[in-house]
Amino acid sequence: MEIVKNVKRTCYVPYHWCYGYYNTLFFERLKEEKVIYGSRCTSCGKVVVPTTAVCARCFAPTEKDPVPVSDEGYIDSFTIVYLPYPGQPSTPPYAYGMIKLDGTSNLFMHMIGGVPLEEIKVGMRVKAVWNEERRGDFYDIKYFQPVKD
């Protein structure tokens, strides 16, 4: 009699994740205004992106009004993904990184594009390239593209 080795199945679980006030605000403004918004900490005075209720370093509340921030900054770190796997945002090879937007104090993760991958360097200046049709999600920004200083 056969000893069955394994059972193969796919699990599918649908969800409805609630954005909450600050995330809703962030994506609505991205779509409507083509502007990235952050929040200023009432204690340390630094600006973090995206908009948030509390500074994750000071645990102090942020100012009530969100702060528009620059869509330019520099690459703090990055990776080029060569490994293909399901659910990826793009077809490898592609680059994404942590971007320090001007005037902010934390890092904003996004794709890096519009440049040959081998030219990407830490410290490079980048600017957001926007999609003309925006749906209120991260890909309202296509990617961040290196620019001259």
Binding site: C11, Y12, V13, P14, Y15, H16, W17, C18, Y19, G20, Y21, N23, T24, F27, E28, G136
Partner: peptide, 8 residues
């Protein structure tokens, strides 16, 4: 609030 409908 917006809601994200997605799945795992």
């Amino acid at each position: 609030s917006r809601v994200l409908d997605w799945d795992i």
